[in-house]
């Protein structure tokens, strides 16, 4: 039974990661792009916890806590950048940030 649960858990993590990647590629609103990054980080943490639960070890949960810390730091800096961008460009369109001609 845990093997079945692990396979489905990893499949779910893959699906959630693919959905987050799709949202990151499709949307141009920078808040939606940040949310998609959060979805992808959450899916990666889900994969860690599923693998940790499969072997009954706490290492997966420890890795999830590290991912949680990283997501918190990333979202604080990212949202500060969103505020900065909204104040400079009067909008949340990521295509407006093409000053580097990238």
């Amino acid at each position: 039974m845990p093997d079945v649960s692990m396979e489905y858990g990893l499949l779910l993590a893959g699906i959630l990661f693919a959905l987050g990647l799709t949202g990151l590629l499709v949307r141009r609103n920078i808040i939606f792009m940040l949310m998609s990054v959060e979805i992808m980080l959450n899916a990666a943490g889900l994969a860690f916890v599923v693998a940790g639960a499969h072997w009954g070890q706490p290492d997966g949960q420890v890795m999830f806590i590290f991912i949680l810390t990283m997501a918190a730091a990333e979202v604080s800096v990212g949202l500060a950048l969103v505020l900065q961008m909204y104040h400079r460009f009067r909008g949340l369109d990521a295509d407006a940030l093409s000053e580097m001609r990238g």
Binding site: S5, G9, L12, E38, N42, G45, L46, V49, V50, G52, A53, G56, G60, Q61, F64, I65, L68, A71, A72
Partner: peptide
């Protein structure tokens, strides 16, 4: 899902922090 996988601590962390 975390709770059903036997990881109640990160389930609580997911709700509280995320």
């Amino acid at each position: 899902i975390f709770f059903t996988l036997g990881a109640p601590f990160v389930a609580a962390l997911e709700v509280i922090v995320y």
